[in-house]
Nucleic acid binder design. Structure first.
Lengths: 129, 129
DNA sequence: GTGACATCTTGAGATTTGCGCATATGTGCT
DNA sequence: AGCACATATGCGCAAATCTCAAGATGTCAC
């Protein structure tokens, strides 16, 4: 494959991939979000990329605020499972918790989440047959 | 734990979790999306829950349309890697491909994706310190 | 302080997922 | 047809992740 370099006229300064439109590639690279930004975006989506957590979030969207036991009953999971998923959601600032006695009440921490869910619902509604 | 049922006054028709506000739980359960809907939502988010795919999508947001080799150069991955992620994105109808000769050009298949990305960007921008 | 309850954390097992390499498919050129 | 190129696919391995069950933490009541 890469043995006899009989023809090697193109000096690629970046990496070993062929480029059709280098100018466009450079322009897009400059304007698109950086690697860190992409990582943060991915983390947000990753947290929501699980049916169990989606159900938790949608339940909180409807209820506004729920304690862990009621939340577990709503989504049909054990309390330990629910608590574990809530920890992941909390780490990403998707939900916030308020302590009242020995109960802990959870609610959404960001209004964007509701919009994200609505958009995703439209997305799956229009494309899925 | 579940050995000596000395006190068992509450008949739970659903499962073995305690309920603080059964009426509210029932109401939320009825109004929130079902399990299938949650699974579809999770699949959409899951596909975007990876830095590499986020970068591909954001690159396509800027470029509109790119062939695999330029896309690989833009996001800084090998063509095989890029192709594999594109397969995942295509399976979820996030991107579409158009063949022109031996090149294959990719673009976003759904306008919702742009909105999702913008919302997620706002989300990570306002909360991250 | 002791006991009961709600929630949180931890650990091992099982499943999934991404990466790298090699190869297959499909297209255009001579 | 034969060759070269762009992309897609299949396989093996390492890493991350979900799940389940048990124990730890913190709070209220007596």
């Amino acid at each position: 494959m890469s043995e006899s370099a009989s023809t090697d006229p193109i000096p690629l300064d970046t990496c070993a991939v062929r480029l059709v439109d280098p100018d466009r590639v450079a322009a897009v690279r400059e304007r698109m979000p950086g690697a860190e930004e992409a990582q943060r975006l991915a983390r947000v989506f990753h947290v929501l990329g699980e049916p169990a957590r989606v159900r938790i979030v949608t339940a909180l969207l409807e209820a506004g605020e729920l304690c862990v036991c009621d939340l577990a009953a709503t989504v049909g999971m054990t309390e330990a499972q629910t608590s574990q998923h809530l920890r992941v959601l909390r780490a990403e600032r998707t939900v916030r918790n308020r302590r009242d006695g020995r109960m802990v009440y959870y609610s959404l921490d960001d209004a964007h989440v509701r919009l994200l869910m609505d958009l995703a619902l439209q997305h799956v509604a229009h494309g899925e047959g």
